[in-house]
C-alpha cells in the first residue's frame, strides 16, 4: 500500500513538472521584447521605453539570462512554492492566488456534487424505461450538455434573481448566493455525466448478472440500486477528475456572470494585461487541482470497484 502511495505521488510530481515546463516553454514564444511589452501594458499606450527602463526590467525578471538559466530559476522558485511576481500588480503570484482561490474552489466542488446528484437521480429513475419521462430525461441531458454555462447563468440570473428576486443578483458570497452559480455550472456537467452514466447503466441492465438477480426475486428498483448503479457510475467516476478541471475553468466564466469574487476576475485581467506569471500561476494551480482530483478519483474508484483492491 505504501509503495502504491509513493508511486502515485511520484507520478503527480512528474505531471506537475511537465505542466510547469509546458507553461514555461509556451511563454518563450511571446512575440516582441517582453520588457517593452510590460512597460507598454502598464502605461496603457505605445511608447518607446528608454534603454534604462528596459534594462531595469530585464534585470528584475532575468530576461537577459539564457533560457536554461531562466528555466532552472523558474523550477527552483517553483520548488520553494514561489510562482514569481505579477507584472502588473507587483505582488507575489502565490499571494494573489491564495487570496482569491477559496470561493472558486467552493464553487467548483459544490457544482461537482450537485452535478452528480442531478445525473444520478435522473439515471436511476429514467434509464431503460420505455416511457415519456425516460425520453424527456435523455433529451434534457443532450440539450444541457451542449449549453454554454455563461448562457445558463444569464438565464437563471434573469429568471430567478432579476425578475422574481428569489436569489441575490450578484456579488453575494453567502450560501444562498452560491446556489445559482453552482447550479449553472452543474447543469451542463450533469448532462454530460448523465449521458455517460446512462449509456453504461443501459449496458449493465442487460448483463446476465442482472437477470440473475431478478430470477432470485429482486425487484426492479432493487436491481437498479444494488447491482446496476455501482457498475454504471464507474466511467463517470473516472471522468470526475477531468470534470473538476473543466468546472474550475468554467467557474471563471460564471464568476464573470454573477460578479463573484474568485480566481476568474484575476485570470481575465491577467490575460488581457498579458501578465504571464499570473496566468501561468493560475494554470499551475488548476493543474495541481486536476492532479489532486485524480488522486481522489483513484481512491474513489477503488472504493466502488473492489476488484482493484484484491488484484
Amino acid at each position: 500500500m505504501a509503495a502504491t502511495v509513493l508511486k502515485r505521488l511520484a507520478g503527480a510530481v512528474l505531471v506537475l513538472w511537465a505542466t510547469a515546463t509546458f507553461t514555461f516553454v509556451v511563454q518563450l514564444f511571446m512575440p516582441g521584447d517582453r520588457a517593452t511589452m510590460i512597460i507598454n501594458t502598464q502605461a496603457g499606450n505605445l511608447q518607446n521605453p528608454s534603454p534604462e527602463e528596459i534594462a531595469t526590467l530585464n534585470e528584475r525578471y532575468g530576461f537577459d539570462d539564457s533560457y536554461l538559466t531562466q528555466y532552472l530559476h523558474y523550477l527552483g522558485d517553483l520548488a520553494r512554492g514561489d510562482l514569481g511576481v505579477s507584472y502588473n500588480q507587483h505582488q507575489p503570484v502565490t499571494e494573489i492566488i491564495a487570496a482569491q482561490i477559496g470561493p472558486t474552489i467552493v464553487l467548483t466542488v459544490s457544482a461537482l456534487i450537485l452535478a452528480w446528484v442531478i445525473s444520478l437521480i435522473i439515471t436511476v429513475l429514467a434509464t431503460g424505461r420505455d416511457n415519456v419521462w425516460s425520453r424527456a430525461a435523455t433529451g434534457f441531458q443532450i440539450v444541457t450538455a451542449a449549453l454554454p454555462p455563461y448562457w445558463i447563468g444569464t438565464i437563471l440570473l434573469v429568471l430567478l434573481a432579476v425578475q422574481t428576486g428569489i436569489f441575490p443578483v450578484e456579488g453575494d458570497t453567502s450560501v444562498i448566493g452560491l446556489i445559482l452559480p453552482a447550479l449553472t455550472l452543474a447543469i451542463p456537467l450533469s448532462g454530460f455525466l448523465g449521458q455517460v452514466t446512462q449509456d453504461e447503466f443501459e449496458r449493465v441492465l442487460e448483463q446476465p448478472f442482472v437477470t440473475s438477480s431478478r430470477t432470485r426475486g429482486m425487484g426492479d428498483l432493487g436491481v437498479r440500486l444494488r447491482h446496476v448503479l455501482r457498475h454504471a457510475v464507474l466511467p463517470a467516476v473516472t471522468l470526475s477528475g477531468w470534470a473538476l478541471g473543466a468546472l474550475f475553468s468554467g467557474a471563471v466564466l460564471i464568476e464573470a456572470v454573477f460578479s463573484r469574487p474568485g480566481i476568474g476576475g484575476i485570470l481575465v485581467q491577467a490575460t488581457s494585461g498579458r501578465d504571464i506569471p499570473l496566468v501561468t500561476g493560475v494554470m499551475l494551480a488548476s493543474a495541481v487541482m486536476y492532479i489532486v482530483a485524480n488522486l481522489l478519483v483513484d481512491v474513489a474508484y477503488r472504493y466502488v470497484d473492489p476488484r482493484l483492491r484484491t488484484a
Binding site: S212, R214, G217, M218, H227
Partner: peptide, 30 residues
C-alpha cells in the same frame, strides 16, 4: 415466486454473478 419456488440459472456462467460483490452476498441474496 422467483428464487423461492422456482430457481433459475441464467446463461453465460462467467458473467452471471455481480463482479463487484462477494460471491457469498450473491448466494445469500435470495
Amino acid at each position: 415466486v422467483r428464487g423461492k419456488e422456482i430457481g433459475f440459472v441464467t446463461q453465460d456462467a462467467l458473467v452471471s454473478l455481480d463482479g463487484l460483490r462477494p460471491v457469498g452476498k450473491e448466494v445469500g441474496e435470495g
